[in-house]
Design a protein around this nucleic acid. Structure first.
Lengths: 239, 239
DNA sequence: CGAGGTCTTGAAGACGATCAACAAACGTGG
DNA sequence: CCACGTTTGTTGATCGTCTTCAAGACCTCG
């Protein structure tokens, strides 16, 4: 299986053979996590970053009221805590939302990249910047969109991100997340997530059966979401 | 006047004399923006990044409903669009919320830093990662906190960020933002911002007169905000 | 076949939005 | 220095989206 991080980066810039080898060399070990397990916990000082190879996971914070806010969802090819390389302290946990295959990347290896591979360093930095761009969209969703728009936006984004790493089948993708989990990501109650999905179904924008989501009307969904894919930087250009 | 970016970074790691000189050399020109002017517009492809030297500005997106969501507030020492160096396209605009003094940093200069100064590169990367950490807190605020908690959190964060660049006076700081602007940042109506501030006043947590905010009871405010400053990475350590 | 998780539906309630109006502060020009 | 218009802050009343609570249906897996 090809390295999904390479797929993700090759979508955005050209990689030399040497750089691909360097990327492959970053992963020292591959570990499996059960659904519900924490890859990293809030407050930790990791000495390695984790690269999600397969599965879904989420960054989260828990408020004193016991409410869990998921601040980001992750798919194959995503570094779930690359920022811990420069930030040192984890300001959030990362939980496996499905069983996950995870590559371990020692910070020492990242440091060597920054010393020897400026272009690759910029691409890793790009990863962090992309996280930021997705966070900003989440802020817009939570602050300025209604539930329907937020949910539609989430689906549009996930579809494109999954497609970029070859995890879609036509306009269908596998989404093994519960409505409760989606609620934690969108700041909505489970009940309202359910009603929102039913609304999207009634508008014939999507078909969502079990863990399979099919986008029936991309333009319609994007309109409801006010989705503009620019922020995902899916264009290949020198960086 | 000392470079507020140097102040910001020196709070987090040791800088060599050479690195400080390199940082000072990044700024090619200094420009002034009037209140309300755009430093950068959504969709642009900047060839330079902008370093805020004095004033307040905000990253924003506008929804089709005409609603403006501010995704981040910026103070002296913040790069408002450092990410455009790797992201290329602006996925948001940046507006001067007060008159602003802004340093211009050509991407070409940043590129030279990545080729020659690995440590400084990591510190610039840190800047982007810090943006991400603040974005995550904004997501938690919008998704999981009520209006009172969000507002309190914003005040806690601004106070610490301003103090880190020497812009506080005891427990008082200058905050020349209108309630309407704060509403755009917190996803609240102006009316509700007003009521929230009055609530904080009634609880004797803050005194807010005109453009001057004094935190009367830091512990109380932090409790209401559930504020944990870890995410600001205000500790000095090798990165 | 039973148990627990997930999905779905209904009803009531809360937080914050919207609408409307007025007061206070500010800057500008006469 | 005052008159005036504009922006900002404040208050009250009503409305709507989403929450909470409660319960039943479905489904998967031991």
């Amino acid at each position: 299986m090809t390295n999904p991080l390479v797929a993700k980066l090759e979508q955005r810039d050209r990689l030399s053979q040497e750089e691909k080898r360097a990327l492959d060399g970053l992963v020292s070990t591959v570990v499996t996590y059960d659904k519900g397990a924490d890859l990293v916990r809030e407050g930790e000082r990791p000495t390695e970053s984790k690269l999600l190879l397969d599965g879904f996971c989420g960054r989260y914070n828990v408020t004193s009221g016991g409410k869990r806010q998921i601040t980001g969802l992750h798919v194959s090819g995503d570094f779930v805590d690359l920022h811990s390389f420069v930030l040192k302290h984890m300001d959030h946990g990362v939980v496996a939302l499905t069983p996950c295959r995870v590559g371990t990347v020692p910070h020492e290896a990242l440091r060597r990249v920054t010393e020897a591979h400026p272009h690759l360093t910029r691409l890793l930095w790009l990863n962090t910047a992309l996280d930021g761009a997705m966070h900003r969209q989440a802020i817009v969703a939570l602050g300025a969109r209604d539930a329907l728009g937020s949910m539609a936006h989430l689906l549009c984004e996930l579809f494109l991100r999954l497609r970029a790493v070859g995890r879609t089948d036509g306009s269908t993708f596998h989404l093994p997340l519960t409505q409760s989990t989606l609620g934690d990501a969108l700041g909505l109650s489970t009940v309202h997530v359910n009603r929102t999905i039913q609304d999207l179904r009634a508008r014939r924008l999507i078909v969502w059966r079990g863990e399979s989501v099919t986008i029936e009307d991309w333009d319609g969904l994007a309109r409801v979401a006010e989705f503009d894919p620019t922020y995902l930087n899916l264009e290949n250009e020198p960086r």
